[in-house]
């Protein structure tokens, strides 16, 4: 991940890279992120721009998967926005109602945008969480795959 870190000409991080880490932070757990945060050098502080708040996202879908849009129902989502002393603004959005998780996701998003931290955090925080998520996804997939049907045709004895 760190080897291929894309940078824009102005030195800021590429959108796809940030989208990736935001998604990993959202799918991680609150405890996991708190533990990583405590491992960082102490004294890292941020201020709240938008206090952690639980609300709703209306989940949209499409008729027939591809057609007209409709509102399926809502999902609970918690969000938070913080600002580092160095000026980076981070946003955290997580499904569910865990405020600590949203706050930590926002804090990591802010810190990841600081170029002194980006590579380090991608390697030491984002990559291991991503690996864990991938592993559990693969384990599930292997179990599901065992339920795939192998069809075989029975020979009918009508011709003799």
């Amino acid at each position: 991940m760190t080897d291929t870190l894309e940078k824009n000409t102005d030195g800021t991080v590429d959108v796809a890279t940030r989208q990736h880490w935001i998604s990993v932070l959202s799918r991680s757990s609150s405890n996991e992120l708190c533990a990583y945060w405590e491992d960082l050098s102490p004294g890292l502080t941020y201020s709240m721009l938008r206090q952690p708040e639980t609300g709703l996202v209306m989940v949209r879908a499409r008729a027939g998967g591809k057609g007209q849009r409709f509102n399926l129902g809502e999902a609970s989502v918690t969000r938070c926005s913080v600002s580092m002393e160095t000026g980076e603004v981070g946003h955290g959005y997580v499904t569910g109602r865990n405020k600590r998780h949203a706050e930590m996701a926002a804090a990591f998003d802010a810190l990841l945008q600081n170029e002194n931290w980006t590579a380090r955090l991608l390697e030491n925080v984002i990559a291991p969480i991503d690996e864990r998520l991938q592993k559990s996804k693969n384990e599930r997939q292997a179990k599901v795959a065992s339920t795939k049907v192998d069809f075989f045709t029975m020979v009918r004895g009508e011709d003799e």
């Binding site: 709703l56 209306m58 949209r60 509102n71 609970s76 989502v77 599901v144």
Partner: peptide, 23 residues
């Protein structure tokens, strides 16, 4: 309960063709 919560946004329509399949 849901009536007590603010609505933040509408999602992008879910792409069911890209689901992680369980069945």
């Amino acid at each position: 309960y849901r009536t007590t919560l603010p609505r933040f946004s509408y999602s992008v329509p879910v792409d069911t063709s890209k689901m992680d399949i369980d069945r």
